[in-house]
């Protein structure tokens, strides 16, 4: 913690960054923080409660954040993958942001409840994450950590869904998606959903009905699943933000496994590696084209 705070203060003092975006203690556990002076930098924290992905704050539409000036962002390895996505897709210039990598052993499934990280309490996405520190950083802080061996309940659930008949799977997703109110929280917190005009907001023509009925919700979630295919960095923000408790991680995880299987691609923290959706190769699988 001291290391992080001292680095933040140094970046601010030397003018390398005008704001350090990290985490601080809030009324309900830790939360995103925007440190613009030494006092605020001294309040920065990093521990297993820091589940929030801070990369979305680099979105150019967040003018009130951009107005603070050149940012330094504290990134866990998954957050660094999100920043890599933004650089790869020309949303952020590498030289416009200072990246402070934190060594990460995983975050808690229930960050608000707090407690120590264990095979029981670790977030599901961290059970299948294999990076402990990112190469996409100007500075790396924290002590090296060993991965926790914990089986992924989410993968088990995906396998259960895969084993269902199409009718059973349909019934499952209809039940889950019926709760969606189309608040768009999943989209707004997603670091890779930065589109100025989301397809779902278009009205001429309207591709996706905005009503949260069966048809509209199915179209919306299919659209997002496809748009995030091979781009989703498994930061877990969509599922964490959903006020209706929809298990969006099951969708992102399933799609990621399809992309890994069909295109041999897993989103990483190297912005130079193209993503399958943004590139074309003559040996791409294409037997589905009639």
């Amino acid at each position: 913690m001291t290391e992080l705070r001292e680095l933040a203060k140094k970046l601010l003092a030397e003018g390398a960054a005008k704001v350090v975006i990290g985490w601080e203690e809030g009324p309900r556990g830790v939360r995103p923080a925007f440190a613009t002076d030494a006092a605020a930098a001294d309040r920065l924290v990093f521990d297993a409660r820091c589940a929030h992905d801070l990369a979305p704050y680099l979105d150019r539409r967040r003018v009130h954040v951009a107005k603070l000036g050149r940012p330094a962002v504290v990134v866990k390895p998954c957050d660094a993958r999100a920043v890599a996505g933004l650089i790869r897709e020309t949303q952020v210039k590498r030289e416009d942001v200072v990246l402070v990598g934190v060594r990460c052993g995983g975050v808690l499934a229930d960050p608000e409840a707090g407690g120590t990280l264990s095979a029981d309490t670790i977030a599901d996405r961290c059970r299948t994450c294999d990076s402990r520190e990112t190469a996409l950083a100007d500075h790396v802080v924290g002590t090296p950590v060993e991965p926790l061996a914990a089986p992924s309940r989410r993968d088990a659930r995906v396998a259960e869904l895969d084993a269902m008949t199409p009718a059973q799977r349909w019934a499952f997703w209809q039940g889950e998606l019926a709760r969606c109110t189309r608040c768009n929280a999943c989209r707004q917190v997603c670091p890779l959903c930065y589109c100025d005009r989301c397809m779902a907001d278009k009205t001429q023509p309207q591709w996706i009905e905005s009503s949260p009925h069966g048809r509209g919700n199915l179209s919306w979630h299919l659209l997002r699943a496809i748009h995030l295919a091979g781009r989703c960095v498994d930061c877990g923000e969509c599922e964490r933000a959903c006020p209706s408790g929809i298990p969006l991680g099951l969708i992102t995880r399933k799609v990621a496994s399809v992309v890994a299987d069909r295109f041999g691609h897993k989103p990483g923290d190297d912005p130079a590696v193209p993503s399958p959706i943004g590139t074309w190769r003559s040996d791409d699988p294409q037997e589905f084209i009639l």
């Binding site: 995103p32 768009n184 009905e209 006020p243």
Partner: peptide
């Protein structure tokens, strides 16, 4: 206060008194 806000609208979705609505023709 709004620096950390994502503009996600989760607050309004769960609020007992946020009542704004949109009218659409489908």
């Amino acid at each position: 206060a709004s620096l950390r806000c994502h503009g996600c609208g989760a607050c309004a979705a769960v609020c007992p008194t946020c009542h704004c609505f949109d009218i659409v023709d489908e």
